[in-house]
């Protein structure tokens, strides 16, 4: 299965994603340049973390209008698997592929540390290799990760099973103290209604081998691979 990793000016996790997919998932992977309007054939596209276009205006706001995003939006609308991590999640929100917006962390600080996430829905293409309710350890690194959406949206996201990860204690309890950035309902990751677009603030690619402190993040990529191999999620680009 062929993965694509988009490089925007200012992306800084594109190589981390590339290496996690190539060396740990053992799948072919190619970079996609932000100016490419024709992205070719891929089975899954990753939007990596970083500071695309310097985070000017709002995180992800300028990247959303780059030529590659027109192709990614079209790909997602046709059911292709898209994973947006950190800044990639912010780009997906700005693009309207996922609902809501990011506010500055409530502490106003850039936070870079390992946190714990509880998997809230394991019947998605991105979480099928994670147990229901399983707690995974994956790092965050962001200043604008305070997820916000209208109350009605949050209820709908929850009811539809679109809330994929919540910040929690090591034992899996959702508490305010375990919420690092003030996100509404401790939300760390969501998917769209169709279930083919995932956005998450934590960095699974940075937790893809034990040498780095955790390999829990690999489960997100392994789930994607399993979904693609089962054939349900393959879409021609």
């Amino acid at each position: 299965m062929k993965f694509g990793v988009v490089t925007f000016p200012g992306s800084n996790c594109d190589y981390d994603n590339y290496m996690a997919i190539k060396e740990r998932l053992l799948q072919p992977v190619e970079f996609i340049w932000h100016k490419d309007a024709d992205i070719g054939t891929f089975d899954c596209i990753c939007l990596p973390g970083g500071f695309s276009y310097g985070d000017y205006l709002r995180s992800g706001a300028i990247a959303r209008f780059s030529p590659v995003m027109r192709a990614v939006i079209d790909y997602a609308n046709r059911g292709g698997l898209v994973i947006g991590i950190c800044n990639g999640f912010q780009v997906l929100l700005e693009s309207g592929l996922l609902p809501g917006a990011m506010l500055r962390n409530r502490s106003l600080r850039f936070i870079c540390k390992y946190i714990y996430l509880r998997c809230e829905n394991n019947s998605t293409p991105f979480t099928n290799q994670i147990e229901a309710g399983e707690v995974v350890k994956i790092p965050i690194a962001h200043a604008d990760g305070n997820y916000y959406s209208y109350n009605g949206d949050i209820k709908e996201l929850t009811a539809n099973g679109q809330v994929i990860f919540r910040y929690c204690t090591p034992a899996g309890k959702i508490t305010d103290a375990a919420n690092p950035n003030g996100s509404t309902a401790s939300i760390a990751g969501i998917c769209n209604r169709k279930g083919n677009v995932l956005g998450m603030m934590p960095h699974p690619e940075r937790a893809a081998e034990t040498l780095l402190g955790s390999e829990d993040g690999l489960k997100v990529f392994a789930s994607t691979l399993a979904a693609l191999k089962s054939g349900v999620a393959r879409v021609a680009t």
Partner: peptide, 8 residues
């Protein structure tokens, strides 16, 4: 279109 994010 660009300067404001209508969600927030």
């Amino acid at each position: 279109k660009l300067l404001a994010n209508p969600v927030i």
